[in-house]
């Protein structure tokens, strides 16, 4: 079984590469004859898109090395500002202070929602905003109050460097209190895996990360999906930014331009985000 899945995955990947090499070759032309490395760090919501783009570029031209690290939006902004990486991703708009201090140029290439997620086994799949605020403040601490199991609610949140946290805290919690009992995880991926493992957990992730292993929670009657974020009915949304120190040049510029090509936009959409020009 596992072998079959693996073989299937391999076939799919090679298909991707094949399709990428033939149909969309035009969008990758900028990388022809180039060589060098691009270092990317920061926002964890960006990672699936970055990885796919990097894979296609490196397959097209093996002389280019692209490394992708996480760390959160704060890390991305700080590292690009200090010249440690070429592109620093952030899931929030850098503050005016950061832009001025580091001479940042921002490239917003997608809109992303921040969805509240619970374990699929949890019957509670709909909350109001005030319930959500009470849950995160620790005022509601049992699923029973909300019509679920008689179990304590396990809160999961992100650390301060997370852009996802910044957006969630501002828009979903209206900068309300977060209980000191909340557990901290370090990335969108880690959030997804702890919530999918904890039947009594609640957390929040980039909508692009929501899949069958976690269940999205309807907030004030709106489900966080690609469509509701796109139409603006789901309000907790933010831009995904790639930032550079000063105007990008060379490979870094090519990489950012690539995200805006039809192929780049297709990658963004296929990873569950809404591409913007």
């Amino acid at each position: 079984m596992r072998k079959k899945v693996f073989a299937g995955g391999l076939a799919l990947i090679s298909l991707f590469i094949f399709v990428g090499a033939t149909v969309y070759a035009g969008d990758l032309d900028a990388f022809k004859g180039e060589r060098g490395a691009i270092k990317i760090a920061g926002g964890t919501a960006h990672i699936p898109v970055m990885k796919e783009a990097a894979k296609r570029i490196m397959t097209f031209n093996p002389d280019i090395q692209i490394s992708i690290a996480g760390g959160g939006s704060g890390v991305g902004i700080k590292q690009v500002g200090d010249g440690l990486v070429d592109i620093g991703n952030s899931g929030r708009k850098p503050t005016d202070d950061e832009i001025a201090r580091y001479d940042l140029k921002m490239f917003k290439w997608a809109v992303d929602g921040v969805g509240i997620v619970v374990n699929p086994r949890n019957p509670v799949k709909s909350l109001t905003k005030s319930q959500l605020m009470d849950i995160f403040a620790g005022k509601i601490n049992s699923w029973k109050t909300l019509g679920g199991a008689d179990k304590e609610i396990n809160l999961y949140t992100r650390d301060k460097s997370s852009g996802t946290r910044a957006v969630f805290w501002k828009m979903a919690l209206s900068k309300g209190e977060v209980s000191p009992k909340a557990n901290f995880v370090v990335s969108n991926g880690a959030m997804k895996s702890v919530v999918s493992n904890d039947p009594y957990g609640i957390g929040y992730v980039s909508v692009g990360y929501i899949d069958s292993t976690v269940a999205p929670v309807t907030l004030d009657g709106v489900v966080p999906t690609l469509d509701t974020v796109k139409t603006g009915t789901y309000k907790i949304a933010r831009g995904l930014y790639s930032n550079t120190k000063g105007d990008p040049t060379g490979l870094t510029k090519d990489f950012i331009d690539y995200l805006y090509t039809p192929e780049g936009q297709k990658i963004i959409a296929s990873k569950g985000f809404i591409p913007v020009k």
């Binding site: 959160g72 704060g74 650390d159 301060k160 460097s161 000191p180 995880v185 370090v186």
Partner: peptide, 26 residues
């Protein structure tokens, strides 16, 4: 990694080292 002094074995807690790793990005 919860920021509270643990009062039982089943409490979530944060160590100094984990705190450094979490806050270094601020």
């Amino acid at each position: 990694n919860a920021v509270q002094a643990p009062s039982s074995l089943l409490d979530s807690a944060r160590t100094l080292t984990a705190h450094i790793a979490l806050v270094i990005a601020s």
